[in-house]
Design a protein around this nucleic acid. Sequence first.
DNA 1: ATGGACCCTAGAGTGCACTCCAGGTCAAAT
DNA 2: ATTTGACCTGGAGTGCACTCTAGGGTCCAT
Lengths: 139, 139
Amino acid sequence: MLVDMSVATTERTDDFPAEGLSISAAAQSTGLSIDTLRYYEREGLILRAPGRSASGQRRYDERDLAWIGTLLMLRKTGMPIRDIRAFVGLYLVDGSEPERMAILTAHRERVLADLREVQDHLVAIDRKISYYEKVVSPQ
Amino acid sequence: MLVDMSVATTERTDDFPAEGLSISAAAQSTGLSIDTLRYYEREGLILRAPGRSASGQRRYDERDLAWIGTLLMLRKTGMPIRDIRAFVGLYLVDGSEPERMAILTAHRERVLADLREVQDHLVAIDRKISYYEKVVSPQ
DNA sequence: ATGGACCCTAGAGTGCACTCCAGGTCAAAT
DNA sequence: ATTTGACCTGGAGTGCACTCTAGGGTCCAT
């Protein structure tokens, strides 16, 4: 029989299994792969490693998932693993809040610049598409 | 003496040297590296290879730069080299305009989706920054 | 007690997009 | 004549972020 370890059979996403989620369930819920979840942990991005079941399997609770959400926020906006590790490391340093904020604001600027660049190129794509619209079905 | 082969000594960007630009000038003008320019050519992204000087050096004219601009438009919006090559190849196929348009519109959708995703994550970054603003300098 | 789904670790492998290197040519400057 | 700088080619190397593999454990249903 296939044991259902996945997120939730019903759509009640809000009640969280007290035992925590298995790695495959955490993968489903975060959109990361199982391998990537373990990789991030090895790379030191998961400050507070998830708990373990009696048999040594990872169990993710809501805090774990929220933290992975933070990683995703940085990663999906193009921050390299190395930089994320540096940022994460500051959580171990008392009074590093100003530094963490500085990293975030600097990153924010980069993201905005990237966004602007992509948007500009998108305009060019749109122009090219409308050229083809004219050529392909004139009128 | 150091010969100035770069873009233009003056700011008159519009008059284009009749001999065309050297690869280093083309690199400066496109923002790509010399190596990347040659790499794109090898990878078949440069349909009409640039002309050559008497001694076999590449000379880029305005059409060449415009084409590289198209490559940049696709590349900077995340299209893989492989896909760009496929798109570019269609320029050799008569009547492939509908297909080229389809590729562009599909790509456009992906770019828009990426953009939305990044923008969503940006909101999360902003939230985190304003949290730190409160923590770092309360009031 | 066996099969199978799921998990574990350590470490190797992959794909991508460059980027660099060695060894050579050429033209202009000294 | 030689040095210098920019360029050439073919091919090797790099960095990144995963992704996969081998070999093994645990738990549960048949």
